[in-house]
């Protein structure tokens, strides 16, 4: 498949410019070539799931999109604008790209409410009262409204991750990046987080999700990207990818995660 078409499963709506666009992106960690000539377009409202073996570069790819990782060559554009270099401009862009981490990373010294308010006030210059209102609405929406005045350590993993999603949403991002959002959770809490992510997808949020949750990929993703050794080896609709993977790497990988 050519990387330039938005890929199967993506509505060809003729809106033209993709929301996120990577061209010829390369990145090294020392001698390790973690990202190799990555080309990727993500359309407005698209949900892309990234899967692949450990160390294939999924997290790194995800983190280049808000420049938590710098790249060695190539270009990355968000909403038609190249990622700015370090500084005020970059900070502004980061506020438009929400990120949810595997380990939640809620601010441990702030209450749940303060976690969601802080960046709105300090980065977005939103008046405090308004920011709190937004925060309470979002916390309510992800089902942790009752926990607003607790500290993160007092919450279960699933609750913490939902707060983290609310915190990212509070900045009104154009795209959300999720790096294995459910991998650190006890099994019984995985679904409450996936449920929130599904409803986000249903509301039309553009999402890049690194996950091994096949159920989520099938039900919410428009497209699955399979990565191995720093390359996007294969991409397809979830249905086609899971039932009929084309590359040997993908077949091998799927057989390992589906039967064990």
């Amino acid at each position: 498949m050519t990387e330039n078409s938005a890929g199967p499963g993506v509505p060809e709506d003729g809106r033209g410019t993709p929301l996120v666009s990577l061209r010829g992106v390369n990145k090294h960690f020392g001698a390790l070539h973690v990202l190799q000539d990555i080309d990727l377009d993500i359309a407005q409202g698209e949900v892309v799931v990234l899967i692949g073996p450990s160390g294939s570069g999924k997290s790194t790819l995800c983190r280049t999109i808000n420049r938590l990782e710098t790249i060695d060559s190539g270009t990355i554009e968000v909403d038609g604008r190249p990622l700015p270099a370090e500084g005020r401009e970059l900070a502004r862009l980061r506020a438009q790209v929400g990120m949810v981490f595997q380990s939640f990373n809620l601010f441990a010294h702030k209450t749940v409410l303060q976690n969601v308010v802080l960046a709105q006030v300090k980065v977005g210059r939103v008046p405090k009262a308004e920011a709190e209102k937004t925060a309470r609405e979002l916390l309510e929406r992800v089902g942790v409204g009752a926990q607003a005045d607790k500290f993160p350590a007092q919450l279960s993993g699933g609750q913490q991750q939902r707060v983290a999603i609310a915190r990212a949403l509070a900045m009104n991002p154009k795209v959300m990046l999720f790096d294995e959002p459910t991998s650190a959770l006890d099994p019984e809490m995985v679904n409450e987080v996936l449920e929130v992510m599904r409803s986000l997808a249903a509301r039309g949020m553009t999402m890049v999700v690194v996950t091994h949750e096949m159920g989520f990929a099938r039900s919410a993703a428009n497209r699955v990207l399979f990565m191995a050794d720093g390359r996007i080896v294969e991409q397809n609709t979830p249905e086609a990818f899971f039932t009929a993977p084309r590359s040997d790497r993908a077949k091998d990988f799927l057989s390992k995660i589906l039967h064990h």
């Binding site: 502004r92 990373n105 802080l118 300090k122 980065v123 900045m171």
Partner: peptide, 27 residues
């Protein structure tokens, strides 16, 4: 202070000074 705290702050658009002053140093 775990690195993830600063990364979360940066991902929300905080600059170096805000990340240090609002998130890292208080912890």
């Amino acid at each position: 202070v775990p690195l993830g705290q600063a990364e979360a702050a940066r991902s929300l658009g905080m600059g170096f000074g805000q990340t240090l002053g609002l998130v890292v140093l208080p912890q």
